[in-house]
Simulated assay, not measured.
Amino acid sequence: MRYAINFTPSAADPLTIAASQWLGRNAFSGEAMELPFIRDLGLHEIAFNTAVPRRYGFHGTLKPPFRLVEGVSEAMLLRQMMHFTGQYQPIALPPLEVVRLGNRFALAPAVPCAELNHLAAAVVMHFDSFRAPMSEAELERVDTERLSAAQFANLHRFGHPHVMDEFRFHMTLTGPVGAAEMPRFEAVLKRYFEPILQRRQQLANLALFIEQEPGAPFLVHSLHPLGSVSARRIA
């Protein structure tokens, strides 16, 4: 069983609904979603190119997937998440936009957000004691030749190369897209998401995602609101 600490809007948020339809699966319920009918893109093309992010569900990673270290229980992790989220206030995110990340597409902030980067680093550091060390098999699956020195150090210290100073917040929308198809996908994704992205997002919770067994789809286990208990009651 693996866990991940992510951000995702609430189940009823218009962005969650639109992204779940695009990916073809709702990470809250686990149910398949009917793919949207989009001009210039066939349903089979959407299904094929969203297969990878569909399994992970719509989210922005803060603490990448990890197994619990021996002696730590899920209940202990949940208690610590409740304590941790009480120390931080919600973050007003910059406008999100459709971006290319190599040969993939994602939603990402239009400008850097220091508060978001600080929170992500704090999550990685705080919960690293809950993470079991990577196995030899897991390390062998990483293409270390493509990593920078900093990314290689992160892999061995925190179990993932793209954390701390190498972190860039994003919410993945596709797997690898062929070079010839990139312009068409970019145009479609902007047309589909930009009306929804007019509404600014607030990072108001940490979401615990869970993978019940290797290869199983990740599901939202629970949402943990940011802010002190007293502030939550006032809100």
Rank of each mutant, 00 (worst) to 15 (best):
P64M: 04
M171Y: 13
E74I: 13
L62V: 11
L116F: 02
L78G: 05
P112C: 13
L173S: 11
M76Q: 02
A47H: 02
S135A: 03
T144V: 15
A150W: 00
V177L: 01
A106H: 02
Y88K: 10
A121D: 07
P90M: 03
P65I: 01
L93P: 07
F48K: 13
E45Q: 03
T85C: 04
A51R: 15
P161S: 08
Q151K: 08
G178P: 10
R168C: 02
A108V: 05
H170Y: 14
F130D: 09
T172I: 07
M134V: 15
A106N: 12
A149N: 15
F152A: 09
E70W: 14
F66P: 09
R100I: 13
L147P: 01
S135H: 11
T172Q: 08
F158Q: 02
T61L: 00
H156K: 00
E138C: 10
E136H: 09
M182C: 00
V123R: 13
E45K: 06
H162C: 13
V72R: 05
E145H: 04
E140G: 04
H83S: 02
A180D: 06
F185K: 11
Y88L: 06
P133V: 04
P64I: 12
V142E: 13
G86H: 04
R141W: 03
L119Q: 01
L147W: 06
N117D: 00
V111N: 14
P95T: 00
L78Q: 09
R131I: 13
D128C: 03
E115V: 06
V142Y: 01
L93Q: 13
E97P: 12
C113I: 05
P65D: 04
I91H: 03
A114M: 02
L43M: 04
E70Y: 03
F169L: 11
S129P: 06
Q151C: 09
R100G: 05
L189W: 14
H59Y: 04
L62K: 10
E70T: 12
G60N: 07
L116W: 03
V163G: 10
G178A: 14
A122C: 10
L41D: 04
V69Q: 14
Y88W: 15
L155G: 01
T50F: 11
T61H: 09
H118N: 15
E115T: 11
P176K: 02
R100S: 07
R104M: 14
V52S: 14
G102H: 14
M82Y: 03
F130K: 05
H59G: 09
T172D: 00
A180M: 12
N117E: 08
Q80M: 00
G102S: 12
L155T: 08
V142T: 04
P95I: 11
H44Y: 14
A110R: 00
M164L: 07
L62H: 06
T172Y: 04
M182E: 04
D143E: 09
V177S: 12
M76P: 03
P94I: 11
R79G: 00
A47T: 08
H118E: 15
K63S: 12
F167H: 02
Q87S: 15
G60W: 00
A179D: 13
G159F: 09
R104Q: 15
F130A: 04
P176Q: 12
L101Y: 07
H162K: 13
Y56M: 01
L96F: 08
F127I: 07
L101H: 02
P161N: 10
